[in-house]
Design a protein around this nucleic acid. Sequence first.
DNA 1: GTCTATACGGTGATAGAC
DNA 2: GTCTATCACCGTATAGAC
Lengths: 195, 195
Amino acid sequence: MSSTRDALMDRAEFYIRTGGYSSFSFRDLAKDLAIKSASVHYHFPTKTDLGTAVMQRYNDRFKAALPDPSLTTLTAPEHVRHYIMMFYTEMMQNQSMCLCAVLSVEQMLLQPALTDSVDAFYTLNLDWLTSVFQLSPQPALPKAQAVQRATQVLATLQGALIGASARTEADYFIMAAKALYKDLFGKDLRFPSTH
Amino acid sequence: MSSTRDALMDRAEFYIRTGGYSSFSFRDLAKDLAIKSASVHYHFPTKTDLGTAVMQRYNDRFKAALPDPSLTTLTAPEHVRHYIMMFYTEMMQNQSMCLCAVLSVEQMLLQPALTDSVDAFYTLNLDWLTSVFQLSPQPALPKAQAVQRATQVLATLQGALIGASARTEADYFIMAAKALYKDLFGKDLRFPSTH
DNA sequence: GTCTATACGGTGATAGAC
DNA sequence: GTCTATCACCGTATAGAC
């Protein structure tokens, strides 16, 4: 069932999240899969097509992992803890940054189809975080404050992933995330011990 | 005197902070200054030379703007407020992100000389922020907590600049910065009104 | 689906004249 | 300092055979 297509997207996602959109070529992908670059073009006619598919799949993963806060019994601290751990886990698996943050940096290089899917990530995540802060008990913030919190959370996590990647130091992310979580809920966030 | 050199660095910094290291070529710079790309190579033999010079100048600007906390009478909230406003002002001037964050994302593309100067930015800023949280009265945190705070601050601001740039919405940065500042010091951070 | 072959523009970089 | 001219290379992308 054309697993070549999936493998190509996997490699592309890895390259982008590790060194940016310009850090790989169709020839690189071809070499990785031991095929020719013309075959890559068969699956994705243009690089924009490939990038967009990768970004959309990323959005879908997040969408699937973000439960409607009004349909669960989880509290805001629990929701946010899962959210942070999702970023953390992906980082630990391959030293990579947030796909959306990387593509945001290279915005000017990208064609509209791709920037649109980047925008969709912001909307999806900010809306979800906002509703978490609005709906869940304990804090139950008014809209304006909830939006502010949502923005703070996303900015901090994306920035923390970039710093952790640059310094090849997972602790950079952990420190930022712990401080953030403590500020949000007054509770300590625990990470699986690193060694 | 060679103001061509400065003009080249200005343009390069703009391009990088707007769309990344790969978003411009020596020919772009040449066109902007109405000269030829060979003349650009006269001032900066390689692109790495240019990038490194730009990054080092950026570091120097920060170094000059960060007063030794033990030699001033400023409190931690005042220091951090100035620090945040420095990022904010640069963002407002040309819709640009933090040079260090951008180059961090494209790390894998860069040669050692350039990544070294990116590392220097992290060290400079984290050390300064840490000493602010360690030395200034009011909070006066122990080392480990001060480092955590420093990391949180840098990550949040870099992430906030990226989000603001992607969404072309200065308010994104303002919201993240306000929430952060309130958490740090319990005080509201005020920005010059946007309209 | 994958291949060979190839077009074509852009890129960093250099030699040497003015 | 700036130019013309040129280089080798790498990028995305396509045509057409198998």
